[in-house]
Simulated assay, not measured.
Amino acid sequence: KLSASLHPGLYRVFYIPLSTGNIMDMYKSIGWELGLPTERNRAAAFRAIRTEITRLTLETGQRPVLIIDEAHHLRNEILEDLRLLTNYRMDSENRLCLLLVGLTELRRRLAMAVHESLTQRIVVRYHLTGLTREEVSEYLTHRLRLVGCELPLFEPPAIEAIFQDTQGRVRKINTLAHYALTSGAIDKAKTITAEHVRMAREEITP
């Protein structure tokens, strides 16, 4: 939704889903998104990325938007280099918009003294709360429609069970609903019941 809401002539969005590797893994992912050749060392990769960001900003008039998912997994050295990537002309210019997306652990990480410089650059913080019961139902309906299903597959007790088990957290809803659908498919059921959700919960919980 964010990408679709940004004017393509003014912004260029780059999405990085991998957050568990080392700094060179991150640079390779960013470079790949930017269409850059793979560099052999950290310094060369850093310079190439900054140069391309500058080119996009000055020559095309597009503001690069770098979205890094699962950012709570990022190593400290990567967070520090990301801070340096946003530093242009001693902070007199803002050529790169960086969005760090992650779980609550990310807030704790950024509150550490070692990341104070990065934290000072953060302009907006947003914490996504859990969905309500009604929103869980609407969300499941929406997800089903995305794959072409208009039928109300989840029975009301199943939706209630999903809400109670996940407290409206979207990622947990996705996982639990997926396993519940699998359980229903194995039973060749026409709808997903609270029992399917219970079996899904047992499958997920170690």
Rank of each mutant, 00 (worst) to 15 (best):
M90W: 10
D91R: 15
D91S: 12
D91V: 08
D91Q: 14
E93L: 10
E93W: 02
E93Y: 13
E93P: 02
R95N: 09
L96H: 05
L96F: 09
C97M: 12
C97E: 10
L98Q: 05
L99K: 07
L99T: 06
L100H: 04
V101K: 08
V101F: 10
G102S: 09
G102T: 07
L103D: 10
L103P: 03
L103N: 13
T104Y: 14
E105M: 13
E105W: 07
E105F: 08
L106W: 02
L106Y: 01
R107H: 07
R107M: 02
R107G: 01
R108A: 11
R108T: 10
R108M: 07
R108S: 11
R109L: 12
R109Q: 12
R109G: 01
R109V: 06
L110C: 01
L110K: 04
A111G: 05
M112E: 15
A113L: 14
A113H: 14
A113Q: 08
V114Y: 11
H115K: 06
H115C: 03
H115N: 14
E116A: 14
E116M: 13
S117C: 11
S117R: 14
S117Y: 10
L118E: 02
L118V: 04
L118W: 03
L118D: 05
T119H: 10
T119P: 01
T119I: 07
Q120C: 08
R121K: 13
R121G: 09
I122D: 03
I122G: 04
V124E: 11
R125E: 01
Y126N: 08
H127L: 14
H127T: 12
T129V: 12
G130R: 00
G130M: 06
L131V: 02
T132G: 08
T132L: 02
T132Q: 03
R133A: 11
E134C: 05
E135L: 04
V136T: 07
V136H: 06
E138K: 15
Y139E: 00
Y139D: 06
Y139M: 01
H142S: 12
H142G: 09
R143F: 05
R143D: 00
R145C: 09
L146I: 09
L146D: 09
L146P: 00
L146G: 09
V147S: 12
C149Q: 11
C149S: 12
L151I: 10
L151Q: 14
L151R: 15
L151N: 15
P152C: 03
F154G: 03
F154N: 01
E155Y: 05
E155I: 02
P157M: 04
P157F: 01
A158V: 03
A158W: 00
I159V: 11
I159K: 00
E160P: 05
A161Q: 06
A161H: 00
I162V: 11
I162L: 09
Q164F: 05
Q164K: 13
